[in-house]
Design a protein around this nucleic acid. Structure first.
Length: 623
DNA sequence: GCAAGGTC
């Protein structure tokens, strides 16, 4: 298996001692050289330019357990001929791989500035672990054959990916530091600073665009002026409720009344079925579960914050009940063993009847509909172990809900799609040879095959049945034929009002962050939490609406009035930087150049902010 | 004390 590492042909045999050890995320932190307390920098805005460009940064082993971990790697490597790095197969994983390589060569002592040139040094032959004996294993799950393949096809660390992450780290650190210092200093002089010494107004390239989304929604709601609109409605023998006309509503009361008078003068007390369209609608079974989906759904269904959800999922993962909960992947590998998971779940009595219908390609089974996302580091989130009632009784209700959600989503994703028969009936009132009359549309939907929906019902408490009256109407509608006449019970002109967009809830914010590339699966929840702890936004207890505070609004509006809205409060700059990072990986750009360009932009931002800072403060006072 | 990214 290890022949390639020793440049041996496949027929040779060799005895290899293999030691496996681990890291826990990043080994290092990156910070400015010397201590740079906020207090020190807060008093002089002009000095902030130095923090942005000149003050050197250093990367050093930091964290509660990391010195021991780095030392452990160093000690074990003393006896090793080869080093195989098996961190996650994403860019952050590549960077952590570089940290491991540094620990192997230098132990704890890489507190000196060691940039990517040192990686080149490490990959040349100047150090003990170098391009000749350091390997990178590429794997995305721990299935046996997959791992075997990865071990027998070792790759090399990719310096470009390391450089990309290093660029992101430096960018985040420098831009975050200067604006956090500036804002903290200046807001301490405003009425917000009840406790001036402790007020902290932070800026980050993820938290600000996220705050921007919340304030943007607030603006759209507060600038909204409702408008009256008019429509014609009928009530028929078919149902008790009003049915509005099929055409778009009119904002002109007089025009609506004219149309109404035209048809009411026909003196007709029936509507005629003018068309019946019958179709199928496929309601797709859920896709394999990603972190972002888990957080959105748990927020929607159980009102959990994204952070809470991840905490419970993490807990379940650490006790072996579910797979790794931080993943962007929504597809399974072709050889994934669905049956063994389904069999595992059938240990739980409430799931057994459903599992029996799914397992061994049972009546309900269909291979999950794979999505298009793959982080190449982890599988989707799925259950690993069933839980006994006794153990389950010791869990908190939230933990039970998250576990149940993961199980049910998995089973549902292994089911056929649900199929509805739909029936769209157009009713016409007042059509003659000389005029068109008015159309009203009624739709019926009848569930033909529940399939995955049968399983989904496990997620909700029992006795959740939809009103029977609706089903009766559905059946009545489905039986109608063109030309049928239906008696009118009531007609009239209705008045409505346009409504503002709804307040953003956590699920909506997660969606916006996800599609705009703000944060990652593991950090989106953290960023939202930061907005709350900084007192930029508040989550209403009852409604779960996310509303910006006066402070949050003043920040976003202030930057917008300074003309810095697009770069500071919108997601474009962050997305652009992510694209530049990809260009570093593909070799089109150098890390240094990307950094210089970003820093030039932020240097202008800082200059403008210092010049026009009074706008921000003015904004703060108004609110 | 501050960023964002890993991880427990």
């Amino acid at each position: 298996m290890f022949n390639k590492y020793f440049s041996l042909g496949s027929r040779s045999t060799i005895d290899v001692n293999c030691t496996v050890t681990a890291v826990m995320g990043h080994l290092t932190s990156t910070d400015f050289e010397n201590t740079n307390s906020i207090a020190k920098w807060c008093n002089d805005d002009l000095q902030l330019q130095y923090l942005l460009s000149t003050v050197p940064i250093r990367t050093y082993v930091q964290g509660e357990n990391n010195p021991q971990i780095a030392l452990n790697i160093y000690n074990l490597c003393e006896r090793a001929d080869h080093l195989i790095i098996c961190t996650d197969c994403d860019t952050e994983g590549e960077y952590i791989g570089w940290e491991v390589l540094m620990a192997a060569n230098y132990g704890l002592h890489f507190e000196k500035e060691r940039d990517c040139s040192v990686l080149k040094e490490a990959l040349s032959n100047k150090v003990r672990f170098n391009s000749g004996n350091v390997w990178r294993m590429e794997f995305s799950n721990v299935e046996k054959n997959h791992l075997k393949k990865a071990v027998t096809n070792p790759k090399k660390l990719d310096p470009k990916k390391v450089e990309a992450v290093r660029t992101r780290i430096e960018f985040d650190l420098r831009t975050g530091s200067i604006l956090t210092r500036y804002l903290t200093n200046h807001y301490r002089k405003t009425p917000y600073a009840e406790d001036a010494k402790n007020l902290l107004v932070s800026y980050g390239s993820c938290q600000f665009p996220a705050l921007g989304f919340v304030v943007d929604r607030y603006d759209r709601i507060s600038n909204f002026t409702p408008e009256e609109f008019y429509y014609i409605y009928i009530k028929t023998e078919l149902a008790k409720n009003k049915v509005g006309w099929a055409r778009p509503n009119l904002y002109d009361r007089f025009a609506t009344s004219l149309i109404y008078e035209n048809v009411i003068n026909m003196d007709s007390d029936v509507v005629t079925v003018s068309s019946v369209v019958k179709k199928h609608r496929i309601d797709y079974s859920p896709q394999p579960l990603t972190t972002v989906e888990l957080q959105k759904e748990c927020s929607r269904l159980f009102n959990f914050s994204a952070k809470e959800t991840l905490k419970h999922a993490e807990n379940l993962y650490q006790s072996g009940f579910i797979s790794y909960p931080r993943t962007e992947t929504n597809c399974y590998p072709p050889d994934f063993d669905f049956d063994s998971v389904i069999n595992q779940l059938s240990n739980m009595p409430e799931y057994t009847p459903y599992c029996e219908k799914i397992v061994n390609e049972g009546a309900l089974f269909k291979k999950p509909r794979n999505g298009s996302k793959n982080d190449f580091a982890h599988l989707p989130i799925y259950p690993l172990l069933s839980v006994s009632q006794n153990v389950k009784n010791t869990w908190t209700s939230q933990k039970k809900l998250v576990y149940n959600f993961v199980c049910v989503k998995f089973l549902a994703s292994c089911c056929k799609d649900a199929i509805y028969n739909t029936c769209t009936v157009t009713l016409n009132w007042g059509k003659t040879s000389t005029q068109e009359g008015v159309d009203f549309v009624q739709k019926a939907e009848i569930l033909q095959e529940a399939n995955y929906k049968e399983v989904i019902s496990l997620m909700f408490s029992k006795n959740q049945k939809k009103g029977k009256s609706k089903e009766v109407i559905n059946l009545k509608l489905a039986e109608l034929k063109v030309g049928d006449k239906i008696k009118l019970l009531e007609t009239g002109v209705g008045i409505g009002k346009t409504t503002p967009p709804p307040w953003l809830k956590e699920a909506g914010l997660i969606t916006l962050m996800d599609i705009n590339g703000i944060g990652t699966d593991a950090t989106i929840g953290e960023h939202i939490e930061t907005l709350k702890t900084r007192n930029y936004i508040k989550c209403e207890d009852r409604t779960k609406y996310l509303k910006p505070t006066a402070l949050g609004i003043s920040l976003i509006h202030g930057f917008q009035k300074m003309g810095l809205g697009p770069i500071i409060t919108k997601p474009f700059f962050r997305s652009e930087m992510e694209q530049s990072l990809h260009k570093i990986i593909s070799g089109q750009l150098q890390g240094r150049d990307v950094l210089n360009q970003c820093m030039r932009s932020y240097s202008k931002v800082l200059k403008t902010t210092i010049q026009k800072g009074h706008i921000l403060i003015g904004e703060a006072k108004v609110n």
